[in-house]
């Protein structure tokens, strides 16, 4: 019943898809981290205009399905005269999406730092900016590693939605094999296993970061 040989034959093709998934995810993570910290810091900047822009961005990202956002990018950018391959559309869509959620994580992280830290910094004459850079952000980084890890795991798994725009990522690679072999269970089982391994590596790396790289205070 369960065709193990088919799975073994499919592994090289699936791994090509996995490499694509990793590439898109890593790029989207970097993009999302940059956006997340920029918008997260904008949200606590005290500049009303920046706060408003961040609010709209976060509202839109949280209020619409990722699949719809992917279509908006994929079909919207050509209308604006920008023809990008599915690969880059995927990076942009996932990065924008993740950035919105990360902005909220960063904002909440900074706001969770005791007010006394800010007051002490201001009391020795540090500016708002210095307080942010030297006191609040370092303390926030460690505090947001667990929720950020969750967010990054979500991103890796959500990249499967890029199959809808025929990006050659892992899920789509699986679908192509299924179309040829009509063995959906075996292939999706293999696909699931590969996602599991990727996410596992990510959460282990994050745990290591939390314990070893950043001191516990």
């Amino acid at each position: 019943m369960f065709d193990l040989e088919l799975i073994i034959d499919s592994v090289p093709f699936l791994l090509r898809g996995a490499v694509y998934t990793v590439q898109v995810s890593v790029l989207a993570i970097v993009f999302g981290l940059v956006l997340g910290w920029l918008f997260g810091l904008a949200a606590v900047s005290g500049v009303a205009a920046l706060r408003a822009v961040t609010g709209c961005y976060v509202q839109f990202i949280r209020g619409t399905p990722l699949l719809v956002q992917i279509f908006l990018i994929y079909f919207g950018l050509p209308v604006l005269g920008l023809n990008l391959p599915a690969y880059w559309c995927g990076v942009i869509a996932l990065g924008l999406n993740s950035g919105g959620f990360q902005a909220e994580i960063v904002r909440a992280g900074i706001e969770s730092i005791d007010r006394g830290q800010t007051e002490a910094a201001r009391s020795i004459g540090m500016s708002r900016f210095q307080t942010l850079v030297f006191i609040l952000v370092p303390q926030t980084i460690r505090r947001v590693i667990p929720p950020l890890t969750n967010e990054l795991i979500t991103l890796v798994k959500s990249s499967s939605l890029l199959s809808a725009i025929a990006a050659l990522e892992l899920t789509h690679a699986g679908q192509l094999i299924i179309a040829r072999t009509f063995a959906p269970f075996e292939i999706y089982a293999a696909v699931a296993l590969i996602y599991l391994v990727m996410v596992n590596v990510l959460s282990r790396a994050s745990a290591l970061l939390e314990k070893r790289v950043f001191v516990n205070y």
């Binding site: 005791d114 007051e119 030297f134």
Partner: peptide, 13 residues
């Protein structure tokens, strides 16, 4: 002006 707080408020990091 130097300020000493009730709860110390040393920079935790």
């Amino acid at each position: 002006v130097g300020f000493v707080f009730q709860r110390f408020n040393l920079f935790a990091n």
